[in-house]
Computed example of a mutant assay.
Amino acid sequence: MVKQVREGRPRSVHAWVAYELGTRIVTGYYTPGEYIPNEATIGEELKVSRTALREAFKILTAKGLIESRPKLGTRVRPREFWNMFDSEVLRWCFDSTPSPEFLRSLFEVREMIEPTSAALAAKRATDEQIAAVEEAYRAMEAAEPGTDQVILTDIEFHMAILRGTNNEFMVSLGESIKTALMGLFRISSSKESAYQASLPGHYAVFLGIRDRDPERARFEMKSLLSKSSRKALDHLAEEERGKVGEAV
């Protein structure tokens, strides 16, 4: 089976090659443990130089996706070695259709971090930081359905809470997974009704933080994430059923 090459290259050819090969890896076209075609074969297929390929391989190696084995070639590493917090790896996962397992794993990470972050923000956030959380929520309310503002304001709401923890590790982790949050919000907020339905949950989180009630903030964030997870997985299942229906 020949992989269809996407059209449209950026000015950086090696970045485009890394995207092509990285997407193939995260979607399972090249599976963990498999040796990918040699430079001559891939170069001919993608119509790029060996120099561009080698630079792309360096990028993928740094992200933990591949490793070179002397006299054997380049193979895909097991998923446990992939840097799943890398913004490009996350983007490659969402540019294809993410699996339910991938989404569940991502929500599990969020459920470990964000309820605790909301509780910490309720205890530690300054008045200015709480005002920033409210401002982000009001921007969510004002966002025009169907536009990128729906997603961007949602991300800013969650980032404002992370900044309100005054824990630099929490903030750094949030910055690392912004790409994943954008992908998740595109899925869970794809329907206008779903986005509107999520607003009361976001407001409840804000109120818990504003009222300096850590356990309430924790509970409301956990509830919000639980609902978001179900919506995202249900939407993914609907898409899969639609594909099956088209194929019949």
Rank of each mutant, 00 (worst) to 15 (best):
H235F: 09
D213F: 04
S12E: 07
A204K: 07
S172Q: 09
F94L: 07
N83V: 13
F206K: 06
F57Y: 15
K58Q: 15
A125R: 03
P10G: 02
E111Y: 10
A160I: 00
P37D: 03
A180E: 10
S190T: 09
L53G: 14
R79I: 14
N167W: 04
K178H: 01
S172E: 11
S105F: 08
M170G: 01
Y30F: 11
Y137N: 11
A18Y: 01
S188I: 08
K3C: 01
V2D: 06
S12R: 07
D213R: 07
D148K: 06
M182A: 10
L162H: 01
S117R: 06
L46S: 08
I42K: 01
A119V: 10
V89W: 09
V89M: 08
H14N: 10
F94V: 04
T31M: 12
E111L: 11
L152Q: 11
P78N: 08
A131Q: 13
S190Y: 13
L184V: 10
A56S: 15
T61E: 15
P32C: 01
K178R: 11
S229L: 15
R163H: 06
A232S: 12
H14I: 04
R104T: 05
P100K: 00
V48M: 12
E156Y: 01
H202D: 04
K58I: 15
R110C: 12
M170T: 01
S189E: 04
S228V: 06
A247W: 13
